[in-house]
Design a protein around this nucleic acid. Structure first.
Lengths: 198, 198
DNA sequence: CCTACCGATCGGTAGG
DNA sequence: CCTACCGATCGGTAGG
C-alpha cells in the first residue's frame, strides 16, 4: 500500500503541475509565465518541478498534444459514424464547445500558444492542425455533393466555425449558467444555419 | 530644409520602430520579442531605441490604441449612416477584413497581445473592446426590431463574426491573390446569410 | 546614435 | 523535495 500510495502521489503531483501550468499559460501566455510562478501555485520550490517534468517546454508539449489527440480521436469517431453531414458537423461543433467549457485552459493554451513549441513538436502540431481542418472540410464537401448542404466554400466554413468557437474567452465564466447553454445553442444555430440549404 | 528633414527622419524612424515591433510581436508574441531583436531589425543598438520611444510597453500601447481608434472611428461612421442594417453589418465586416489584409501585424497584435498592456491602458482597452461589441450588437438588434434581420442573439452573432475574421492567420499570405478575395466573399456571404431572414 | 553597464529575472542543474 | 547556485538574457539608464 505504501508503494501504491507513492505511485498515486507521483502521478497526481505531475498532473497538478500540468494543470496549474495550463492555467498560468492561459492567463499570462507561455513566455510570460515563469516556472517560479508555477511552483508557487503548486506549493513547492521551482527546482522541485524538475523531478516531475523535464522542462518548461515539455509542459507545453503535454498540453498541446493532449488536446490535439482528443481532436483526432473525435474526428475518427465522427467520420466512422453514419450521421448525416449536418449532424456530423453539429457533433463536431458541440464537441468544440464542450472542450471550451470543460477543458478551457488546456484548449485555450493549445490554440494560442502552440507557436512556442519547439521542433519537432512544432511542425508536428502544424501538420495535425492542417490535417484536422482538411478532414473537417471534407465532411462538408461530401454534404455539398449529396445536396445536404448549401453550396459554400468548405474550407472557409471550417475556419469560421473553429475560430468562432475558439475565440470566446468568456466560455468559462458563463458556463454552467443558463447564459452559457444559451450561448451554445445560439452559436450552433447560427453556424448550422450557415450550412443549411434554404 | 535641414530642420524639416531632421523632423521627417525622426518621425519616420519612430514609425519604422513601431512597424518592426508589430511584426515581431505578431511573430513571437509581446513577451518573447526582445528590444534587442527589434533593434537588430531596425539596424541600431538596443539602447538607441529609447531615443524614439519610452519603453517596450509604449510600443504595445501605440499599436493597440491605433487599432482601437480606427475601430471607434469606423463605428461612428457606420452608426451615422443611413444604410440598412444588413448593409451596415456588411460594411463593418469588410472593414475588419480590410484591417486583416492591410494592417495585418497591427490588428493581429492588438487582438491577441492587448492583455500585456499595463494599467491604466489595460482597463481602458477592456472598456473599448466591450463598448465596441455592444454598439455592434445594437445595430443588429435594431435590425431585428425593424424585421430586417432574423431573430437571433445579437451578442452571439457579433462574437462569431469578429472571431471568425480575426482568427484567420493566413489573410496576409493569401491576400492580393484571387484566393484572398474569394475568401473574403465567402466569409461575408456565410456571415451575412446567418443574419438574413429566410 | 553608441559603449558600457546595471539589477532583475529567467530556465535549469548539482548535490544532498 | 530543498538550498544554493549558474550562465544567459532581459528592459532600461548613464554618459558622451
Amino acid at each position: 500500500m505504501g508503494r501504491i500510495k507513492t505511485t498515486n502521489n507521483q502521478i497526481s503531483r505531475r498532473e497538478i503541475i500540468i494543470e496549474k501550468a495550463a492555467t498560468l499559460f492561459k492567463e499570462k501566455g507561455f513566455k510570460a509565465a515563469s516556472m517560479r510562478e508555477i511552483a508557487d501555485v503548486v506549493g513547492v520550490e521551482a527546482a522541485s518541478l524538475y523531478n516531475h517534468i523535464k522542462s518548461k517546454n515539455e509542459l507545453l508539449n503535454i498540453i498541446c498534444f493532449d488536446v490535439a489527440n482528443r481532436y483526432t480521436h473525435k474526428m475518427e469517431e465522427v467520420e466512422a459514424s453514419k450521421l448525416t453531414t449536418l449532424a456530423k458537423v453539429e457533433s463536431l461543433l458541440r464537441f468544440h464547445i464542450d472542450g471550451m467549457v470543460n477543458h478551457f485552459e488546456e484548449v485555450y493554451v493549445s490554440d494560442r500558444e502552440w507557436k512556442h513549441l519547439d521542433n519537432p513538436y512544432l511542425s508536428n502540431m502544424q501538420n495535425q492542425r492542417r490535417t484536422y481542418r482538411k478532414r473537417f472540410a471534407a465532411i462538408i464537401e461530401e454534404g455539398i455533393k449529396k445536396k445536404e448542404v448549401k453550396k459554400i466554400d468548405a474550407a472557409t466554413a471550417v475556419l469560421i466555425m473553429l475560430h468562432a468557437i475558439g475565440g470566446i474567452e468568456s466560455w468559462h465564466r458563463s458556463t454552467r449558467k443558463i447564459i452559457g447553454k444559451e450561448l451554445e445553442e445560439n452559436m450552433v444555430t447560427f453556424l448550422i444555419d450557415g450550412l443549411r440549404k434554404i
